[in-house]
Design a protein around this nucleic acid. Structure first.
Lengths: 220, 220
DNA sequence: CGGGTGCTTGACCGGCCTCAAATTAAGTGG
DNA sequence: CCACTTAATTTGAGGCCGGTCAAGCACCCG
């Protein structure tokens, strides 16, 4: 399998792995670190599309050509690089890898679908709660034995706004409310979940469907 | 390849191919017709996630388990059914199918990313223009020789609202504006693009990146 | 200690939602 | 082909959530 690997790359927090408009010659496997996919708008604002954690596959575009979004490191991060034109050969030789890549991309799509319902149909309060819940669950799945209700979350309030289609100013007001309701505290990149049940409730997710969501996250 | 096929199914407009919470035993290949993926909320509202045209792969979930969204026919439609537990075998035997499925799912993800920027960061005016532009382009790619600026679009104004995170009432006002601006007319399921250039402009897309979007659609 | 980035709060505004009612198009049975 | 029913479109009045603008504060790092 190693013959398909082109090399490794270490990123510092803030580095771009690739930017929108860049030709896509490679795909990447994220070993560790937090990254985000984002799309800039003409007026300088941006929309964050996805947060990538360890095990993510990055830069797998539907066609050769240019990337339509960028990918930036939120923490220091390490990726393996695989040349895109080796991908077909790799899939041919290792069908289980093809299945795994398809599965990962499919989970990304499902997460994007979740974000769509949030941004499209929920209040700012619910959106922020949902995002914090998602990142809390996904992040905690990385250390299955780790059950702490406090974690490191390398986002600014502006980042949360850029993810949920809100301004940083309003995110701040929502976070104040969530703190006063004794649901979560988020302060300078530390997230503390005070009352998980209330958080699930505030996120406005159906506990029934939540189950499948947890199950999905568990396959990380 | 036919040994992997379980059968066919013909759907009437309005039929559900699968619903949220349903176990996912099968994946589907859409031969013809319009379908939409949607997610219902507790209060009865819903978010439309994606419109599927001929060639789409439906019901490929990240894990076995239950579907987190539903799939409904907007017109009469025909699908092939493939048992999910045959999928690994099929990928092993036909690596190019694996590549193709991964590509299709990846394009769906990219479209979801587009929708995320729209809903998150654009005005109602831009959102509606963008959706009409997307469906116009994607639909027209189905008949490469067909260059008419008028087409059948099997959506209600409510559907457009459910896709873009708006109410049907507001969509109606936006459509009135777009008509008065001589950009597009949408009346009882017929879409007429009066001025394509103005439509691209109204959608607020970077013509530079639009290129890659067209190229992507062209691979349908 | 000082500069910069990120957080916090207030006042005001506007885009989109809500509620409600009238009108038009489509479907259906006689 | 027409009366009837139902779904979809259209328009108005009023209200609220979240944006904008602006200022001051807290935390981090050299």
């Amino acid at each position: 399998m190693t013959i398909f690997k082109l090399g490794d790359r270490a990123l510092k927090a803030g580095d771009d792995l690739f930017v929108p408009g860049e030709p896509s010659n490679a795909i990447y496997y994220l070993h560790d670190g937090w990254m985000c996919l984002y799309k800039p708008l003409q007026d300088g604002r941006r929309q964050i599309l996805h947060f990538a954690l360890s095990g993510a596959v990055l830069g797998f575009p539907p066609t050769e050509g240019t990337m339509t979004y960028g990918c930036r490191a939120l923490t220091d991060a390490n990726v393996s690089i695989i040349r895109r034109d080796n991908l077909s050969a790799m899939f041919r030789e290792y069908p289980e890898v093809a299945m795994r890549v398809a599965t990962i991309v499919s989970r990304d799509r499902d997460l994007a679908f979740d974000h769509l319902s949030n941004i499209g149909r929920r209040t700012a309060h619910q959106r922020v709660a949902h995002l914090l819940l998602e990142l809390f669950v996904r992040s905690r799945m990385q250390w299955p034995d780790h059950t702490a209700e406090e974690m490191f979350l390398p986002l600014t309030q502006e980042d949360i706004g850029d993810t949920m289609g809100l301004t940083g100013v309003h995110v701040n007001r929502v976070l104040r409310d969530l703190r006063q309701e004794q649901i979560v505290e988020f302060h300078y990149r530390r997230l503390r979940v005070i009352n998980p049940d209330k958080l699930v409730d505030a996120a406005g997710v159906d506990p029934q469907l939540m189950f499948s969501w947890i199950a999905r996250a568990a396959t990380d």
